[in-house]
Design a protein around this nucleic acid. Structure first.
Length: 795
RNA sequence: GCCGCUGUGGCGAAAUAGGCAGACGCACGAGACUUAAAAUCUCGAGGUAGCAAUACCGUGCCGGUUCAAGUCCGGCCAGCGGUACCA
């Protein structure tokens, strides 16, 4: 027998699959379909990380198994190639980003091919290809036409290192999600997408999909729905202060109001405020605080009382003072709150610092909370009081019920070169004018320098010939929008393009979309939960609303793989020197061993450290599989009933486990089976075929080789039919029954299926080792679980 | 603070639906083969006590339900992740 030469074998079969177009999908819309998807990578200069194959192999196993089960499987791959690292590399090395992208893609693609993942490369997409981003721009135009894309000047997050704005979702702990640099606030005019219009639906429709609880919870948390009321407080100047509260039932406990430093009423009132200079000073200080300072520092409450202004509590007419404080944010609710220091931690802190009265309006009464000091609400539970007071507001026209969301509109422009141009023209007469769809794609201008200016302008502003254009509406001279789209744009709809990647008339044909969508199984990282996953759900709902896609959700089932950490248990990073390069592993152990290892390493969804000796163990398993050809019995032999039953059990186990993400136990059951085969000392051709088919999705190359070498069947393994188990053969006739006394294990007895309680009890009593525990004792109860366990309860 | 997840050998982890805790693998130990080593094969192994049969203890902690609890219920603790002056 030849030695197991993984390099030779793997190259051989990869070439055959490529030559024979084994994994190319046909648009046969009559067959049952299965759409398996993994998040397409950003083709970075570093190349593939060992974490990538974990996700890709998992769904490759699913895809390969589904094909063997007769499904028409779409398992595509592409490149999310716009983005900052490429642009920064291009600037530093003075190469065009398109060239950097091309090189990186070519490297990634070779690495992926060496892993033997069954992607249909004929459907490869690249978000930086104008033929692709034409449709990203097209979707933007549809959003614009429906009023969901708009330009607005507001305070936005600004990364001081990337020199560009960030979406709310891209700020992590006050720092840039990508480069961890400081994020500050800047007032800038930006393109925004009205994701807030979809807030409720993004929550509600989570009921329709099979996502991990963790993902659903994070999205719901991020959207941050809260139910309360908006209430108007009259002031001595006649203007009303509109506040938002989730606890309108505590309104009798209000002792002051707080408005945010950016609140527009301050400007309106400036002549009537006696301490206006002090207020102005406070406003300036608040403005200077960075995102980091606002979130990271231990904050002592600060604020200034607005002198000359007071408000009236709508329920009792009491005068209440008004403060300015930066613990109230302009960007949430109405930018003003009613303070109830007795029942709110933050209000209490503030009240204590400024010696403001604290009035209790909830007391405990026999373990339950009831309202007190609140006139007509007294004695009610907070729940009921809430309803009562809202009715009162409505009747007296003082306020109403209100639902607020923490989710904010998506800041959609970036001051960078390497992104999709926004297809909008600025015209002095007509305002923001969209390009005609026939003008798409609006391609990036060729440029030599891509540096961002320190003033925060996009590099595109220097492409004078490109910027200067005419207004599509009035024909007068006008300028193009110079900001580009964020990296999240291209990935918000890419899964639709895979269904029909070469279509030049539509983003994909309706027929292809209807057939392939929604995605049956989508695996990706947890870090995209409130970014890509939320954005793409939003876009998909929009496309549903304008009749492009057939349903409200892009994917039925979402799973998330855990990270592969360094051997020392820490996250892999160059600086820690614990990075494992997949190329080295493929070279030394083979792609099949790497695939087996990464699937066997532990619970798919959990983080787990890399282990080189574990890697060797996986290789050892494949060598044992390879060695089965040494004990192959060509002629028909007596089937061992026990081993045959184990084969059927293993088929069931592997089939079920692949569906439920338990690749580790699927492999464990195959290891167990191979151990039992070696115990028997030989394997029949039929059994070797079944074993090969079961192992094939996990280790596709070695199984093809053995299949052809041992002539186990015609054609390729990946084109065979998935083995079917016979449930009646999964059972052993002979079985072990556990014997317990008072619930403790005291022995075992071998018997036959279907034996009854009395027979087992008789057998048990004949066993000296068991009988001594019940002899001379009173038997209170005998519990018997058919074919499993006997428990004798004695006193 | 709030939300979510996770706590099981030296390590990665298994355990349908309450029914033998630790499958499978790694590392380890002993043996076989070898001049020797590596590789491979065989055997062993949760802890404590014991030569041993065996006994007792054991799934983060405390309590409960049950003939029987890693699994169910109540109360905690720890770690990880998300989120946060969000009113």
């Amino acid at each position: 027998m030849l030695e197991y030469n993984h390099s030779k074998i793997e190259k051989k079969w990869q070439d055959i699959w490529e030559k024979e177009k084994t994994f190319e999908v046909l648009n046969d819309f009559k067959r049952k379909k299965f759409y398996a998807l993994v998040e397409f990578p950003y083709p970075s200069g570093q190349g593939l990380h060992v974490g990538h194959p974990r996700s890709y192999t998992a769904l490759d196993i699913v895809a390969r198994k589904k094909r063997m089960q007769g499904f028409n499987v779409l398992y595509p791959m592409g490149w999310d190639a716009f983005g900052l690292p490429t642009e920064n590399f291009a600037i530093k090395n003075n190469i065009h980003p398109a060239i950097v992208t091309k090189n990186n893609i070519s490297n990634f693609k070779n690495q992926l091919k060496a892993l033997g993942i069954s992607f249909d490369w004929s459907r490869e997409i690249d978000t930086t290809n104008p033929k692709y981003y034409k449709w990203t721009q097209w979707i933007f135009l549809q959003l614009f036409k429906k009023g969901l894309a708009y330009k607005s000047e507001s305070s936005v997050n600004w990364c001081t290192s990337c020199k560009c704005v960030l979406a709310n979702e891209e700020v992590v702990n006050g720092k840039c999600e990508r480069c961890s640099s400081e994020v500050i606030h800047k007032v800038k005019s930006q393109w925004m997408l009205k994701i807030t219009k979809y807030a409720q639906r993004l929550i509600d429709d989570l009921k329709l999909v099979d996502y991990p609880e963790k993902v659903k919870a994070q999205q719901i948390n991020w959207i941050g729905r809260s139910v309360g009321a908006e209430v108007d407080f009259e002031t001595n100047l006649g203007d009303k202060i509109k506040i938002f509260t989730t606890r309108p039932d505590t309104i009798f406990g209000v002792t002051y109001l707080v408005i945010s430093p950016e609140h527009p009423l301050i400007e309106k009132w400036k002549r009537n405020i006696s301490n206006i200079s002090e207020i102005k000073k406070y406003q300036e200080e608040a403005q200077k605080k960075s995102e980091f300072q606002r979130t990271e520092l231990i904050k002592e409450k600060t604020g200034v009382k607005i002198e000359g202004i007071y408000a009236l509590n709508p329920v009792d007419g009491n005068k209440v003072p008004v403060f300015v404080s930066d613990y109230v944010l302009m960007s949430y609710g109405t930018g003003a709150i009613m303070a109830v220091p007795a029942h709110d931690k933050r209000d209490k802190e503030f009240a204590e610092k400024y010696s403001l009265p604290i009035l209790k309006v909830i007391e405990e009464f026999s373990g339950k909370e009831i309202i007190c000091n609140s006139e007509f609400l007294n004695g009610l539970s907070p729940q009921v009081a809430k309803e009562e007071i809202i009715n009162w507001f409505k009747k007296n026209k003082k306020g109403q019920e209100k639902i607020n969301y923490k989710l904010r509109d998506w800041v959609f422009s970036r001051q960078r070169y390497w992104g999709e141009p926004i297809p909008i023209v600025h015209c002095k007469n007509c305002g923001y004018v969209p390009l005609d769809e026939s003008e798409l794609p609006l391609t990036l201008p060729e440029m030599e320098k891509f540096e961002t200016s320190s003033t925060g302008e996009s590099p595109l502003i220097n492409a004078k010939d490109w910027v200067e254009t005419t207004c599509p509406k009035c024909g007068q001279s006008a300028q193009r929008e110079t900001d580009t789209m964020p990296q999240w744009a291209g990935s918000s709809w890419y899964f639709l393009r895979y269904t029909d990647p070469a279509n030049e008339k539509e983003l994909a044909s309706r027929e292809a979309i209807d057939y392939w969508m929604p995605i049956d199984w989508y695996n990706g990282g947890m870090e995209h939960t409130t970014l890509h996953l939320l954005y793409s759900r939003f876009w998909y709902k929009f496309l549903y609303d304008i009749g492009i896609v057939p349903g409200p959700e892009p994917c039925i089932k979402r799973t998330s793989h855990g990270l592969i950490l360094g051997e020392n248990g820490e996250k892999m990073s160059k600086s820690k020197g614990n990075v494992v390069n997949p190329d080295d592993i493929v070279r030394d152990y083979g792609a099949d061993s790497l695939r087996i290892y990464e699937m066997f390493i532990g619970d798919f969804e959990k983080h787990t450290p890399w282990s080189t000796s574990g890697m060797r163990g996986s290789r050892r398993f494949l060598e044992r599989y390879w060695g089965l050809q040494n004990i192959l019995k060509e002629s028909d032999i007596e089937p061992n009933q026990k081993l045959d039953a184990l084969f059927h059990k293993t088929i069931k186990k592997v089939s079920d486990d692949i569906e439920s993400l338990k690749f580790n136990t699927a492999i464990a059951s195959l290891m167990n089976l191979i151990n039992k085969i070696y115990d028997q000392g030989f394997i029949s051709k039929e059994h070797l075929k079944v074993f090969t088919l079961l192992l094939a999705p996990f280790a596709p190359h070695i199984t093809e080789e053995l299949f052809s070498k041992c002539k186990l069947g015609e054609g390729l393994v990946c084109k065979q039919t998935w083995p079917i188990y016979d449930l009646s053969k999964c059972v052993d006739e002979e079985l072990e029954i556990v014997l317990q006394v008072n619930g403790k294990l005291k022995g075992k007895v071998t018997s036959f299926r279907g034996v009854n309680k009395e027979e087992i009890l008789k057998l048990a009593k004949e066993l000296e080792g068991f009988n001594k525990f019940i002899q001379g004792k009173e038997i209170i109860k005998v519990v018997y679980i058919q074919d499993r366990l006997l428990n004798v309860v004695v006193r």
